[in-house]
Amino acid sequence: MNAGVGERSSADYLDALSRGDRRAAQAVVERLRREGMSPLDVMTQVIAPAQYRVGELWADDSWSVAQEHAATAVSESVLAVLTADTEAPGLSGAPVVVSCVEQEWHALPAGLVAAHLRAAGIPVSYLGANSSADQLVRHVHELGPRAVALSCSLGASLPRVRRQIEAVRATGTPVIVGGSAFDPAGRRAATLGATAYAATGALAVPAVQGLPRAVPPADPLVHPGADEAVIVQAEREAIAANIRRRVFAAHPSDDPVAETSGWRKALTDHLPHLVGAVAGALVADDATVLDDAVTWLDHVLSHRAAPSGLTDELVQALAAELREHPVAARLLTRA
């Protein structure tokens, strides 16, 4: 296949996403598959860049939430078909359970890991997006897998990663983690108690091959802030609601639908993630988790005509909410 065809397909695919047209998106993928492209290459060369672009288009306010949702839902369903295509029925032995951390809906990184492992002859039991800790442990009990591979994309999900690592390691099963919520050196992964870290889908293969068969339960987290992480995580919706009220009161609007669009809507949707990123930074003992979330939210808000300085206001409001938690408060002063 030459580059021209690839570009055309990528453009066609993004075009199908922009219309939320699953059949058109599926048709692009089927065409590429017929031309001999592997499921893995379709994922990395077509779907991944397109989904990255969708994220940018939404963040820049070029696409509506509905368009972004439709596009993501289409890509997820295309991905589900594609991941099923990577199944290799001949493989036997204890599988690797591959899953997204609970409450994450972007299955792409997990799909990539599953495809890479299967291509290397390692059997996979693929759970896809949004598996709860209960579902994960049930699969571990049923399958006795050699490992669980968890993908995590958002800093705010790191507390859930920790919970799932604890649950899985309690069964003696090793856990590999990967995804954009982790730093390239794997420091956060190590802090959270993961047995191994895979910086890319391809690196999941050697990571699995190098795993011990059994691991002891995860050690309790003792670093400063680990306890605060639990509290902030438990209180995050209340904290987000307080900040939202405070910020909306400081920037009143006469427009009755103001809260359902523009920066107010984006703030309502993403404040819980910002608070979650504080818990993520605390549990992973890494302030940059929060910095990344602040930078991203600042970008989103500034593209939605937010009042200037709103992000600073948010960070200050967050600091005020968390003033009784010294480690969190220090993080926020720094941010």
């Binding site: 219309r19 939320g20 047209d21 699953r22 059949r23 509506s64 939430v65 509905a66 949702h69 439709a70 839902a73 289409v74 997820e76 369903s77 809906w105």
Partner: peptide, 16 residues
């Protein structure tokens, strides 16, 4: 406010 032209996307949007 969600997608309409694909039932998988409709159901998944509600689920999310």
């Amino acid at each position: 406010s969600g997608p309409r032209n694909d039932v998988t996307a409709v159901v998944e949007t509600v689920a999310m």
